[in-house]
Design a protein around this nucleic acid. Structure first.
Lengths: 211, 211
DNA sequence: ACGTGTGAACCGATTCACAGCA
DNA sequence: TGCTGTGAATCGGTTCACACGT
């Protein structure tokens, strides 16, 4: 009932629930049980109920959950009602893919700018997003009240640039560079490390299969 | 000592250790203690020792670990000595970024082809990687003995295509599509869900900071 | 009877603490 | 003494089991 110590994994699942529920709503399903969710997602029904229970009693015993109100609850938890301005730092291939990625807008994220040091790129516009000089980060972060950044610069410069982002007031960084960033506790950091994922996969698929 | 039940998280860290150790070797450091590793990576020294202990006694008490032999051990664990052929399925922006991503070759991954259904893209060559019709997956997977695939197709088609990959004999899928894929147990699956990561980050950075 | 909400039991992973070897 | 390797203790997250509301 009280909003206590919710783990990152729970939050990640909450986002999955939201996506799933929206899909249900589109199919005009408006009541759902934890078992039905557990069938479509890869999550046990108890897990689903427990995850939600951190945020209150959102279902009806003997009935299930109203899809529309549950969606609203989840949206509230994530603060989706207000647009979240983000930036992409590093306008390489990966940055370009992120700028074009359609999945962000479902959650009310808006990419307000991309940044690079390469003079040849600065000034271009990708999908309506302008590429700016890295020197302009501070201005733009302040002007658009940007809280989050996706970092897609080369590993060598990632630490320096991340520190610059922190100085500008960025509160969370999604880091794609394969380095361990050292940042103050007050800044949230999540890493997406594709080579590591692939290595893990290689290891897993090389073992004698259980199943 | 015995190779028992190693968790995914351990494997993921092992890959980080490998990267870190290689960096040390480049700086001509050839002896390292678990504490030194723990300072650079974000992992406790006990964790590091325990992770390695699953694979034998690789260090020397009172001294530390030899960087070069430890690297070789890790490479062995991951099977890095033999080239691992992979494919990219879905030649959109993200697929293009993956094809160009330099971080894979450090671990002896080789992207042998990309696939798409779009006739306009088929036949093009990106970074030396040819874009093929999806119909040719089976041929190419067999010809190049491909074990792993990165899946960057739209969410709607991901399940179908994933099943096709499994039929071709793919043993592991790194899935970038925002859906829960339903696959046989014998196939390893890891998801990279950028929107979910960003949602988690938004949640974390919105909370009162601990730190 | 049905399905939620939740304390209790369980399980796995991390951390502690120390024995053992250089 | 210094640092590894590892059982034991701890911690946190998942699953179980059931009371409760509809």
């Amino acid at each position: 009932m009280k909003e206590r110590k919710v783990s990152n994994e729970t939050i990640r699942r909450l986002a999955l629930y939201l996506r799933c529920l929206r899909k249900l709503l589109k199919s005009n399903i408006n009541i759902v049980s934890s078992n039905q969710i557990s069938d479509t997602l890869n999550v046990s029904s108890e897990q689903f109920r427990k995850d939600l229970s951190y945020f209150g009693s959102l279902g009806k015993r003997g009935v299930g959950y109203r899809v529309d109100t549950l969606i609203r609850h989840l949206e509230k938890i994530f603060g989706i009602d207000e647009e979240c301005n983000i930036i992409v730092v590093g306008a390489g291939k990966l940055g370009s893919a992120l700028v074009a990625y359609p999945g962000f807008m479902n959650f009310n994220f808006r990419i307000v700018a991309a940044f690079d040091i390469d003079r040849k790129k600065i000034g271009r516009v990708w999908e309506g997003v302008k590429i700016e000089s890295i020197d302009r980060i501070s201005d733009i972060v302040k002007k658009h009240k940007v809280h989050l950044a996706m970092l897609t610069v080369p590993a060598e410069s990632a630490q320096i640039i991340a520190e610059k982002l922190v100085k500008c007031g960025i509160k969370g960084i999604l880091n794609f560079a394969p380095v361990n960033l050292e940042l103050p506790e007050s800044v949230s950091l999540l890493n997406v490390d594709m080579a590591t994922e692939l290595m893990t996969l290689r290891y897993l698929s090389g073992k004698p299969c259980r199943g």
